[in-house]
Structures are given as structure tokens and as C-alpha cells.
Design a protein around this nucleic acid. Structure first.
Lengths: 111, 111
DNA sequence: TAGATACTGAAGCGCAAACTTCACTATTAA
DNA sequence: TTAATAGTGAAGTTTGCGCTTCAGTATCTA
């Protein structure tokens, strides 16, 4: 199964906005129409549609229009890319890390 | 060991900027001074310092000034919070997910 | 067929955020 | 003690982004 290529830059930008994360929260509970998403958010339908474009382009959501209703749902591709990015960076720096040093710094931080 | 509370909003905002991710890339290879970080980036020292403030506030980096040199390094707290967020949201929606539906959608996507 | 519903497109507004400049302080080196 | 280095602080510029309005189009319902 081939997977669409995800631009990690888009993913981070998409997740940087609280409203878009709220939309993803809502979609976590299951698919929803654009109107349903707009409901609890105090913004216009247009604004929601714009957020959805960004979420789609980043691979975090997918939408499909049937009749006059556009149904939206979460997509894993964006999340996969994000987890990969974290894992990559983590291994890089954890490898060369002075664990004692960090431990001491963490202790000191608890003032 | 008590851990400092991380605001996930700050984390996402911090990671939303490519320059800040470049700084983290560089810090993955080990600690660096502000000047060293500014070197390869085509921006002023002041700009780098501003990015570092944001990275610190989000728990993605820590800095310490010794003499006239401020040394910067990666901090795990921000990354931990990020991974937690992904894990939380993933389980939420994966639980109620129609796997066959997604499979078909993924296939269709490979045009 | 008429009206309501569900969105779309284009254009514009306002603010936050990234970046700059420049003057300044503190530390180290000659 | 002079000069160079490393970074800080405040203030201003500019651009992008989230949002709005408003005028459409397509679809469904009575």
C-alpha cells in the first residue's frame, strides 16, 4: 500500500493553531460535517472550511463531499509523519546525551 | 522526579516555525552557543535569541549562561508532552475506527 | 417550483509574529 | 586598560494568517 507523501512543515503549521486542534479533537470522536464542526466553534463556516483545507493538505484529515454535505474525518498519515519526526530527533540526541547531566538539571529545575 | 508543566499549545506553536526546527536539528547533534546556532541561519543573533526564548518556554530546549556565552541544549519535556498528545488522540479515534473504510480510502488515494 | 440548507470563492481587514536595527552591558583577551 | 567578543533590550517594519463579509452555486425538501 503506497502512502501519500507528507510535508512535515505543513503538519507542524497545521497543528500550531488551537482551532485546528479543536477540530481534530472533535473528529477524534467520529466523522462530522463542516456545519457540525463550526457549531461549537465561534467562527464562520468559511473559516472552518479554510482550516479543513489546511488539515487536508497536511494529511491530518480527509474530506469527501456527498450531495451538499462535506463529511470530514481524521487521517493517520499526518500523525504518522509527526511520530516519525519525533522518533528521529529523539534517537539522534538521546544517543549522545549525558544522562547524569540532564538528571541533575531536572532536579535543579524543581525549585 | 517532578516534571515542569508543559503547555502543549506553546509546544505546537514553537514547532510550527521552520527556523526553530532547524535550531532543534542543530541541537540534536549537541549543545551550542547562540552564535554557533546563528551561524548557518541567515538571521541576526537577536532573532536567534528570540527563537530560543520560545523554545525554552515550550520545554523543547534549555539554556544556561556561563560568562558571556549562553549554551543551549535540547530538553525532553516538550517532546514528551508532544508524544503524549499524539498517543492520546490516536487511541481516541483508532478505537472507533472503521478500518475497512479507511483501507478503501487509502487505496483510492493512490491514483 | 419555491425556499431552505450546505457549502464555496473572492476580496479585504487587523493583528500577531518573525525579523531588523541600533544602542547597550558584561565578559574575556591582548 | 583597551579592544574584541557574546549576548541583551527596546522599538519599529513587514508579512502572513485567521477571520470576516457578501455574493454566489449546488442540493435537498415541501
Amino acid at each position: 500500500m503506497r502512502t501519500k507523501k507528507i510535508d512535515i512543515n505543513r503538519v507542524f503549521h497545521a497543528l500550531g493553531d488551537p482551532t485546528r486542534r479543536a477540530i481534530l479533537d472533535r473528529l477524534s470522536a467520529g466523522p462530522a460535517s463542516v456545519s457540525a464542526l463550526a457549531g461549537p466553534l465561534a467562527i464562520t463556516l468559511t473559516a472552518v472550511a479554510q482550516h479543513l483545507e489546511i488539515l487536508e493538505a497536511s494529511g491530518l484529515a480527509r474530506t469527501e463531499k456527498i450531495g451538499r454535505v462535506r463529511t470530514c474525518q481524521i487521517q493517520s498519515a499526518g500523525f504518522d509523519a509527526l511520530e516519525r519526526w519525533i522518533a528521529d530527533h529523539r534517537t539522534l540526541w538521546e544517543k549522545r546525551f549525558d544522562r547524569l547531566g540532564q538528571f541533575l538539571l531536572d532536579e535543579e529545575e524543581d525549585e
